[in-house]
Each structure stands twice: as C-alpha cells, then as structure tokens.
Design a protein around this nucleic acid. Structure first.
Lengths: 233, 233
DNA sequence: GCTCGTCAAGAGCAGTGCTCTCGTTTTTTG
DNA sequence: CAAAAAACGAGAGCACTGCTCTTGACGAGC
C-alpha cells in the first residue's frame, strides 16, 4: 500500500489540492474579490455546491490561501537567509529584503492578501499566525545574531530616549528578536516596517512608475536601511 | 440668486453629494467590497437604477471616494504642517506623521482604499494623481526647506554610494522634493515609505496587538526616522 | 402651450455565496 | 457477506450584486 489512506481519502486530498490550485490561479489573475467558488467549480467541471464538501465557505478557502501564501514567502525568506554565511549579517539582511520583494512582485495579488488591506468582512483566524511570523522570525534571528556578535554598530547620532511605556512592548517583540536591548528592538521594527513600506509602494503602484530601475533603487535603499540599523554592508 | 444654477442642477448636485455621503458611510462600515449601489439606493429610498443617472458605474463612485479621501488626508497634512513654525522642520515632520496616522486610524477603510491593496479590477484613473500627491508635496517642502536652511544633518556614517541609474529617477522625484541632492532624495523616500510602512502594520493588523501604547511607540519611531533623515528633533 | 431633455422606476440579465434535497457510491459495521 | 452509515455530486432554489433597457412622468426653454 502506498499509505493507510482509503481511496476516498486520497481522492479527497487530491481534489482539495486541485481546488486550491485553481483558486490560486484565479487569485493571481483577478485578485481576492475575483475569487469565485462557482468559477472554480466550472473550471473543474463539477457543480458549485460540491465545492462546499471541501471548503465550508469562501472565507475558509481564503484562509487556506493566506496560510499557503505566508508559508511561501516564509520559505523563500528562509532559503535566501540560509544561502548566505551566517556571520555575514548584512548579506543576510539584503538577501531577506530581495527575497520578500521578489516574491511580492511575482505574486502581487497574493502579497496584497497578506500585507495589503484586509478583505472586508473577513477576519483572519488565529491559526494563520504561526505561518505569518516565519519571515519575521528569520529577520529577528539576523538582528539577534548580529547583536550577539557585536556586529551591530548604528551610526553615531543623538537618538531620543525610548519611551518608558515601550519596555513592556519590547518584551513581547523580543520573542521574535531575542536578547537585544530596547533601542535595538525599535530600530529593528523601523527597518522591518520600512522594508514592507517600500515594497507596498512598489507593488501597490504608489511610486506611479517614477522609478525606472527599481531593483537597484530598492537595493540601495535597503543598504542605507541596514546602516541605520547598525549592520555593516 | 444664490447662484446661476437652475433648480434641476441644484437638486442634482445635492443628490450627488448625498450619494457619496451614504457611500462613505457604507465604506466606513463594510469596506470597499461592501459598497453596494443597491444598498445606497435603498437607504436613500430610490430605485437602484436611478443611481446610474449620477454615477455611470460603481468604479466611478469609487474614484470619487478615492479622490475625496486623498484630499481629506492631504488637507489634514497641510493643516498639521501649517500649525508648526516653518523653521521647525523636525516639528513639521512629526506633525505630518501624526496627521497621517490619526487620519488613517480614524478612517481605516478609506485609508485602505488609498494606501492598501488596490481594488481588483479597478484601475485608478489619472485624475486621482493631483489629489494623491498633496500629502507628499507637503513632505517634500519640509525636506526641501530643511535642506535649503542647512538644517539637514544626517548621522555620520558610511552610506553606500547612490547607484548611477538613480540619477534620472531622482530628477523625477525632485518635482516633489525640489533642490536637494540625490542622497537626500533617497533618504527622503526611505523615511516616507517608512512612515506608511509603520502605519500599514498598525492599521492592517500586522502588529497583532503586540504594542500596548501605539502612540508613543509610533512617535518615538518617527523621531528616530527624523534623525536618520537628518532632521534635528 | 408644446416640445424636448432629464429623471425615477420597474423589469430583466448574468453573475455571486450559500442551503437543501435527492439519488448514488463508498466505507464501516453487524 | 450483507446491511447500515457516512460521504459525495448534482440540481434547484434563495437572496443578493452590478448593470441595461424601456416606460412613463415631470420641469425648463422656445
């Protein structure tokens, strides 16, 4: 036997996968609100009502796609990070930046689903969280590693003092960026949100085609960001 | 006469305004994809088909809402900037940051329409651009003013050289941040995208309630951002 | 006073998510 | 091995959507 699954369970798993595949293809073409259970059923040659045997609602299908998306970008980030020597913290940061950006530009609609405006009426269930923090966890390890190695040397400047109310929050964020002081947590958050801010502008068309060589502009911006974070490039 | 408009034109303008008002209210409650022409008509006590006398399609209504939204945030930013002494460039930057954030948190669905993922199938017409750059223009003047006044002193660090391909792009961006060198353009873009990146994380729930005192965290982050941009705080 | 353009309303088309029922098929149980 | 149980696909149907077309009424200008 290939497995202990019954024939029914095997065909069920196969059909479930096919549904998500078709859905992902529709998502790539028409975006989240173009996702139609009836269209999926039509393309698969089955009745629309049959889809509900596999996904109880459109939102459940959306949740599956979101989790898959988080895992995809998380895996891309993990691979990019693993391809750089661990002690080259600046290189790891740049690899992560480009991995996120490349994935976002290759799957703009999926990216929008993850990091854009939430789908109205849809409330992401809590089980998306583990997948959602995969990329952030990689980033946190980079910052943490660099700090532990003493390779985090931010430019000499007068930074305002971290507000006292941030101490508690920093403790929570430290689950993802372990063993760093509060001011590193702050700089880490700034760089991380800055990365996604730039990518959002690019993917969502805010730059309005004003940048002709977006790759090197992005690369340079993230290099500068690395410097203010304290990484040597 | 209150104006040279005929009675018909006046009631038409009045009805058009009422439609957008109802639409904005629906938008605030249900988000962009919950915007229903039939529901608007129902709430106004008129036939759904009558709406089409005023807006030829749902997308046209959406465009009106988007332009109104850009103007609202633009006006908020302009007012915030004007309330600070022009020579206090750091204060102006912080005022702009908080103005954008406050508006975004007060109108999350409208903000999502402007700076989140684009509505699938909807292509923003070119006449949204003038309204869309109002806030950016204010920001550009702040950076430009600070540079001209010699008040832009970025922290001393080794920044990578600006890539040659960026020269042309910088010229285009300089329409909004006039009279500054290329490296200031880059830092300006980083700070601007960083502002929206942070706000996006907050509005779109990426922080996942990990930050208990979001106002002071945001304030501190933007103060740090100001320092890397070169503004004194 | 009459014509002409503007307007609201209604019916209708094609599409959507979702539910329910009804046979059929497969698995599990006796 | 046969019977009960569970899973399944198909179809009809409900309430909803954006949008179009036609019909009839109302008001402004000649």
């Amino acid at each position: 036997m290939s497995s202990s699954l019954t024939a029914r369970e095997r065909v069920r798993a196969e059909l479930t996968r096919e549904i998500t595949d078709v859905a992902r293809r529709q998502l790539a073409v028409d975006g989240a609100s173009g996702l139609s259970l009836r269209a999926i059923a039509r393309e698969m040659g089955m009745a629309s009502s049959a889809i509900y045997r596999y996904f109880p609602s459109r939102d459940d299908l959306l949740t599956t796609l979101i989790i898959d998306g988080y895992n995809a970008v998380g895996e891309a980030v993990e691979n990019a990070d693993a391809a750089v020597p661990p002690e080259d913290h600046g290189g790891r940061w740049m690899a992560v930046c480009h991995a996120v950006r490349d994935w976002a530009l290759a799957h703009p609609h999926e990216y929008a689903l993850l990091y854009g405006s939430p789908v109205p009426g849809y409330r992401a269930p809590q089980d998306t969280v583990p997948a959602a923090v995969r990329d952030t966890a990689v980033y946190g390890r980079i910052v943490s590693d660099a700090h532990r190695a003493g390779a985090l040397n931010p430019p000499d400047t007068t930074h305002p003092p971290v507000p006292p109310s941030f101490h508690e929050d920093a403790a929570r964020v430290r689950e993802l960026i372990p063993d760093v002081p509060d001011d590193v947590v702050v700089r880490g958050l700034i760089a991380w949100t800055g990365l996604f801010g730039w990518i959002n502008f690019e993917v969502f068309g805010q730059f309005d085609n004003a940048i002709l060589d977006p790759v090197s502009a992005f690369d340079h911006a993230m290099r500068c960001q690395a410097r203010t974070l304290g990484l040597s490039i």
